[in-house]
């Protein structure tokens, strides 16, 4: 049973002068537990597609079925509810509220929940979500006290706290270095292993290798749709760490050698 079904989705941006056809007819089926990477050069329509998939935007024509409901006919408020209940978002630039603790950032989606949860339940779920991304000891830290990787992990926790059906990640590693990128991808892969459907937009093929299926867009149409053997982020991370360690070893050896020289001179005197 596909969790997402797109049929003939088009999206046309109209300004007074011109009409830009960003999507020209997209058909896409995503099964539950899929890990899909959406690739394409800039201007290919991948952001537009992501907005529609994320219920932030409505298609000009075509139908979008999310969990067997035709989302393309939903009102603004109904879309807001769908975003809150069925979807989790992770953005390139984290989008954490400044001056607000990690815990409160993660609680945010629960505050807008349709059925009211008790404050106790809200706190409990947020804490659990942060613990699941390894930030159980950073609950009271504000974004400016966190590293980039930690911020993105808070954002992942915020996306997970509502127990969504689909996680939408828009260039999740775009602002991160190699090591933290691998850490984030490791978390995402583990979530996928636990049964979460994942849609990830990226323009880096490096990152797309961690997905099980890669959809490439070009000029508003799907150019290719391939299943691939996914790379394990964990293994990549271990390899990277081992390399880094040997490099660090070399460096300490070098500095140790350098240190020996003045010592030798001391002896000479």
């Amino acid at each position: 049973m596909p969790i997402i079904e797109l049929e003939e989705i088009t999206r046309i941006y109209r300004t007074s002068a011109v009409a830009v056809e960003a999507l020209k007819g997209i058909d896409l089926e995503v099964k539950e537990r899929d890990f899909l990477a959406i690739m394409g050069p800039s201007g290919s329509g991948k952001s537009t597609l992501m907005n529609i998939l994320g219920c932030l935007d409505k298609p000009t024509s075509g139908s979008y079925r999310l969990d067997e409901e035709d989302v393309s006919k939903f009102s603004r408020n109904r879309l807001a509810r769908t975003r809150n209940q069925a979807l989790g978002f992770v953005f390139q630039s984290f989008h954490l509220l400044p001056r607000t603790t990690a815990l409160e950032n993660v609680e945010l989606p629960l505050l807008y929940r349709e059925e009211g949860l008790s404050w106790k339940e809200i706190h409990r779920r947020a804490r659990e979500a942060l613990e699941s991304v390894g930030l159980g000891d950073r609950l009271d830290h504000t974004p400016n006290q966190l590293s980039g990787g930690q911020k993105q992990r808070v954002a992942v926790a915020r996306a997970l706290v509502t127990r969504p059906r689909v996680l939408l990640a828009d260039e999740p590693t775009g602002n991160l270095d190699t090591r933290t990128s691998l850490e984030i991808m490791d978390i995402v892969q583990r979530l996928n292993d636990d049964g979460l459907t994942i849609l990830m937009v990226t323009h880096e093929s490096e990152v797309a290798r961690f997905a099980e299926r890669v959809v490439t867009l070009r000029d508003g149409l799907i150019e290719s749709d391939e299943r691939t053997e996914s790379l394990s982020a964990r293994r990549e991370l271990e390899r990277w760490l081992a390399q880094a360690e040997s490099k660090a070893d070399q460096r300490t050896r070098k500095s140790a050698e350098l240190k020996e020289v003045p010592e030798a001179e001391e002896v000479a005197i």
Binding site: R76, N77, A80, R81, F89, L97, L108, Y112, R113, T162
Partner: peptide, 16 residues
């Protein structure tokens, strides 16, 4: 603006 955008994205409605 970004804060409002985020709130809307995680499910706040306009009236909220």
């Amino acid at each position: 603006t970004r804060e409002v955008g985020l709130r809307l994205a995680v499910g706040a409605r306009g009236p909220d």
